[in-house]
Amino acid sequence: KDVDGAREEIFQFLRFENNLKVIYIDGWDGFGASAILRSIAEVLPSRRTTPELCFDRIIYIDCSQWKNRRAVQRSIAEELQLDHSVMAILDKQDEEDDFNKVDESSRNEVHSVGKVINQTLRGTKLMMIFLNGSDEEVDISTFGIPLAIFDNNIIIWTFSRRCMTMN
């Protein structure tokens, strides 16, 4: 009936569904999904005493205002607090794209940054909360999130519904 209730229902579901690895949240016909994910991200760190809800890393990626794939990768790198040299790689690629007049929406992830993200997350128990503002599903492995990571980890995601209309 409300965001807190939905969050607690998801936590209950996670406690008993050990083989569920990817959860899509639609909210109430598209409304409220972002609020539910934000609430999960805020409350989850305090639930570390529950083994099913205890994660080595919890990353909350809010790309509801979609720019491009590189911006998602940058958000992941920032959330993981990767070294300044990694951020410099992203900055340099942005500068090159600016110089070459590459459209902002066409900027893709950087492979070398993906490798660092992959190495950072390999062997950790991860909860990734992802607000996808694009109009398409996104393969998160292209950002460096290891596919095998989902053997022990969970992603909860939603689409942004910023273009929804009321009839």
Results as ranks from 00 to 15, higher is better:
residue 36 I to Y: 10
residue 129 I to E: 06
residue 135 D to F: 02
residue 9 E to W: 04
residue 113 V to T: 08
residue 53 L to T: 02
residue 60 Y to K: 01
residue 58 I to S: 01
residue 135 D to G: 08
residue 58 I to G: 00
residue 18 N to D: 13
residue 32 G to K: 11
residue 7 R to N: 03
residue 53 L to R: 02
residue 18 N to H: 11
residue 27 G to D: 04
residue 38 R to C: 11
residue 100 N to D: 13
residue 61 I to P: 02
residue 17 E to L: 04
residue 67 K to Y: 07
residue 20 L to S: 10
residue 105 S to W: 05
residue 60 Y to G: 01
residue 61 I to N: 04
residue 97 D to F: 08
residue 153 N to G: 15
residue 96 E to D: 00
residue 163 C to D: 12
residue 87 M to H: 09
residue 7 R to H: 02
residue 116 V to L: 07
residue 97 D to K: 03
residue 147 L to I: 13
residue 91 D to A: 00
residue 22 V to P: 02
residue 139 D to K: 09
residue 49 T to G: 13
residue 77 A to V: 00
residue 21 K to Q: 14
residue 101 K to R: 06
residue 55 F to Q: 03
residue 94 D to H: 00
residue 1 K to A: 14
residue 132 N to R: 07
residue 19 N to Q: 15
residue 95 E to K: 08
residue 157 W to H: 06
residue 29 D to K: 01
residue 156 I to F: 07
residue 17 E to P: 03
residue 149 I to E: 13
residue 147 L to V: 13
residue 131 L to Q: 11
residue 122 R to V: 08
residue 145 I to R: 05
residue 3 V to K: 10
residue 119 Q to E: 15
residue 75 S to H: 03
residue 52 E to K: 01
residue 4 D to V: 11
residue 120 T to H: 10
residue 64 S to Q: 05
residue 78 E to L: 12
residue 144 G to S: 11
residue 166 M to N: 05
residue 92 K to G: 06
residue 4 D to P: 01
residue 126 L to A: 04
residue 6 A to C: 13
residue 38 R to Q: 14
residue 16 F to W: 08
residue 43 V to H: 09
residue 27 G to H: 02
residue 59 I to V: 14
residue 95 E to G: 07
residue 99 F to M: 04
residue 48 R to H: 13
residue 154 I to R: 14
residue 31 F to S: 15
residue 165 T to F: 08
residue 8 E to H: 15
residue 24 Y to T: 10
residue 167 N to C: 12
residue 134 S to I: 01
residue 30 G to H: 06
residue 101 K to Y: 04
residue 74 R to Q: 03
residue 166 M to E: 09
residue 122 R to W: 05
residue 53 L to A: 03
residue 120 T to L: 02
residue 93 Q to R: 12
residue 26 D to S: 12
residue 72 V to W: 00
residue 31 F to A: 14
residue 58 I to P: 00
residue 60 Y to Q: 00
residue 150 F to W: 15
residue 137 E to N: 06
residue 116 V to D: 09
residue 125 K to V: 10
residue 126 L to T: 05
residue 130 F to V: 03
residue 24 Y to W: 08
residue 16 F to K: 09
residue 13 F to T: 05
residue 59 I to L: 13
residue 90 L to G: 00
residue 125 K to F: 07
residue 39 S to A: 11
residue 116 V to F: 06
residue 39 S to G: 14
residue 47 R to E: 13
residue 137 E to G: 04
residue 105 S to F: 07
residue 80 L to G: 02
residue 24 Y to K: 12
residue 124 T to V: 10
residue 1 K to T: 14
residue 68 N to Y: 07
residue 121 L to Y: 12
residue 113 V to I: 03
residue 132 N to A: 05
residue 77 A to H: 00
residue 85 S to I: 05
residue 111 H to C: 04
residue 131 L to E: 14
residue 4 D to G: 05
residue 35 A to N: 08
